[in-house]
Amino acid sequence: MDLFDDLPEPTQTAGEASVQKTCPSPLEDRGSKRKRDAPDDDEVVEEQKLEEKKVCKGVPILKGYVAARRGEREEMQDAHILLSDMKTCLSTLPTTVSRLAYFAVFDGHGGARASRFAAEHLHHTLALKFPKETENLDKLVKKCLLDTFRQTDEDFLKKASSQKPAWKDGSTATCMLVVDDMVYVANLGDSRAVLCRMEQEMQGGERKCVTLALSKEHNPTIYEERMRIQRAGGTVRDGRVLGVLEVSRSIGDGQYKRIGVISTPDLRRCQLTPNDRFIILGCDGLFKVFSAEDAVKYVLNVLQNGSVERKEGQTEEEGHYEAACQRLANEAVRRGCADNVTVILVSVSF
């Protein structure tokens, strides 16, 4: 059974790629084509077909914005990363893939070491494991993401157990990988990702906003999660594993791994369309005081109404997205969220 939970498919796509940031520690870029001596006609035709295929695909422009607030906590335990161009992290990239982007938010608990480790290392492991071929790409990307989360968890637990005293940190993870116009979201815990899609009303009415969930929450009150924990010898009290841990899947949390807390993410896949406006990735600090629909409507209101101050070099649209991201995080704190709040807002345009 395919682990992907597919969202509604689009009817058309069109657009170009955009670069915002590059990999913080890129591997050497060896993906460029090498010169060949006197290519024959068949090779020229195949290359032309490949370029035509890339153009026809339609690659949306993605730009990421982030806002992080410590709230009333003594320490900022959230971490995040925005890579509008992840190609620089890969030594080779399948020839049919035009663009690779990666955005992720990590909500730490018991300390900030697990979330920071995941933010620093998960995308590098993902780059090393990314498929080198395009046949059955969806299946290969799924395996790549599952392997990457397992490896990241194992690497952190190995480092955590080698410390004296051993680290007991853990972290949620909501990671969005964009391959051309296809979005793959892998998540653990209670951080979330939601998509704003504008759909036409019947009989030629105005377009309405539809909020699509791109992630699935994992907490021990969910039947399947609780059963797994109990089968492994753990207990759930007051909605928490052993009465302590609020999530049932995470990176780290070594002391809970033997009683059913796992690092296997849920995976969802969604093809972007010209009707899509933006994606919100946020930790539970945001969604404790905002429903997914309310968060999307709040962002839309900022985008559609009023003037905003722009940073030097920003377009008016970029200024609105920046303001929407910052105001959403501020509003979460104003509404009484005492937790850390991290918001990543990714604009989508074709």
Rank of each mutant, 00 (worst) to 15 (best):
L140Y: 02
T92E: 09
E16N: 12
V244L: 08
Q304I: 01
A127H: 09
T96Y: 03
L195T: 07
G108R: 05
L90F: 14
D42I: 04
G254R: 04
D339R: 00
C89Q: 05
E246M: 11
S250M: 07
A112Q: 09
Q314P: 05
L212E: 13
S91W: 11
R237S: 10
L345A: 09
F117W: 04
D147P: 01
L267P: 10
V183I: 12
V178N: 01
L188Y: 10
L146S: 10
R113D: 14
R258G: 03
D5F: 04
P131A: 11
E317F: 03
R228G: 04
K288E: 14
C196Y: 00
T148I: 07
R226A: 15
V241N: 01
K143F: 00
L62F: 15
V141A: 06
G336W: 07
T342Y: 05
M202I: 09
L62A: 07
D2V: 01
D29G: 02
F278R: 11
L300N: 14
G233Q: 11
G15S: 09
R70F: 02
A160E: 03
E74I: 00
N301P: 00
T174R: 07
D78W: 07
R30T: 14
F130A: 02
D190E: 07
S91M: 13
F106S: 10
G254E: 02
V183A: 13
D253F: 06
G31I: 00
T342V: 11
C175S: 15
P94G: 05
T125S: 07
S84M: 00
L214A: 14
E16Y: 10
G233P: 06
G111E: 11
K164N: 15
I259T: 11
Y223V: 12
Y223C: 03
M202D: 11
K139W: 03
H80W: 13
K49C: 10
V59F: 04
T125D: 02
E16D: 13
Y321R: 02
C23F: 15
Q230P: 00
F4A: 09
G15Y: 08
T235E: 11
T235K: 15
D294F: 03
H124G: 03
G260V: 03
A329N: 04
L272S: 09
L145A: 09
P220L: 10
E201R: 05
D155N: 14
R197N: 13
R207S: 14
R258S: 14
C89D: 05
P39C: 01
F156H: 04
F149I: 06
D78Q: 09
E120L: 15
A79T: 05
E154K: 12
A101L: 10
N136M: 13
N275C: 14
A193R: 05
W167T: 00
D40M: 01
M76N: 14
V179F: 01
R36K: 15
T174N: 12
F106I: 07
G252H: 06
F149P: 03
E52R: 12
M182Y: 08
N301H: 13
E199W: 00
G71K: 02
E46C: 06
R73M: 08
E199C: 06
V333P: 01
L62K: 13
Q12R: 15
N187Q: 10
V183K: 11
K158P: 00
